[in-house]
């Protein structure tokens, strides 16, 4: 018997207006930690959102653990981009993390104690236990990112999809995220993360998907994350900063 991959996508195409953002992507996410890498506007976030049904797909099929999303929603976690919400919203860090437990609660009434405790435990896991009652607008950017991470953890999912978890965070937060990722894998969970920093791909992830609207390469970092594949994915759009990152990655690889 073969075990179904945590996430499998076949012939997925998504377009905004006339412009295709994700083009005929067929891909099986491996177990463990996987990075989705590609240039700006390559459809990385769109791919994640499309698998979760947050943006409509023109065609294609998505399976989580071999089943459609509706049947396994409770096994999937999600960490959206930090900028996708208004952090001025009147809520505390604990309020936000509790939102992860709503599918397990009745639709009315206050948050039951045990879910509150689970949310607090998730906050502690990212080093934010002292900020539970803090207004989210009064947290630093890195702390806000850790609140989102705690929320994804509180979902207690087998597969967590993360959209740029490392974007614009401080060193402490980056370290907290890395620790959490490794903990998840140690517990047999899986993570698929959109990642923008080529230099840290080999350090943080075991597998990689290189995408620029369509799939350019995928597989274990050692095999797929090669200069030739990176060059092909980034193509002529290789920006100066990305070049620097590639060089750093090359230096590490050699």
């Amino acid at each position: 018997m073969t075990i179904a991959p945590p996430l499998s996508v076949s012939h997925l195409t998504v377009a905004y207006g006339e412009r295709p953002a994700v083009w005929d992507v067929t891909w099986n996410a491996p177990t463990g930690l996987t990075a989705i890498v590609g240039p700006n506007g390559a459809g990385k976030s769109t791919l994640l959102k499309a698998t979760l049904g947050l943006v409509p797909a023109l065609s294609g099929e998505v399976r989580f653990f071999g089943r459609p999303l509706e049947e396994v929603r409770d096994r999937i976690g999600y960490l959206p981009q930090r900028a996708s919400v208004d952090w001025d919203f009147p809520a505390t860090a604990l309020d936000v993390v509790c939102m992860a437990r709503y599918p397990r609660m009745r639709w009315w009434g206050p948050v039951p104690r045990r879910h509150r405790d689970a949310a607090r435990a998730a906050l502690a896991q990212v080093g934010m236990e002292g900020f539970a009652e803090r207004q989210i607008g009064k947290l630093s950017g890195g702390q806000q990112q850790r609140v989102f991470l705690a929320r994804a953890l509180a979902q207690d999912a087998d597969l967590v999809l993360m959209d740029e978890p490392f974007a614009a965070v401080d060193a402490a937060t980056e370290q907290a995220i890395v620790t959490v990722l490794r903990d998840l894998v140690a517990k047999g969970r899986h993570v698929v993360a959109v990642h923008h920093d080529l230099g840290t791909v080999p350090d943080y992830f075991s597998s990689v998907l290189l995408i620029n609207a369509r799939v350019f390469a995928s597989g274990p970092v050692g095999e797929a994350f090669t200069n030739a594949n990176i060059g092909a994915t980034y193509g002529a759009r290789l920006a100066l900063l990305d070049q620097a990152n590639v060089r750093a990655a090359e230096a590490r690889a050699s």
Partner: peptide, 22 residues
């Protein structure tokens, strides 16, 4: 009052709620 939690969650992060099938 009764729907307080749900209303707050949908106002704060509708995409996350949609993803959870709420």
């Amino acid at each position: 009052l009764v729907m307080f939690q749900r209303l707050r969650a949908v106002c704060f992060d509708p995409d996350f709620c949609r993803m959870q099938g709420l």
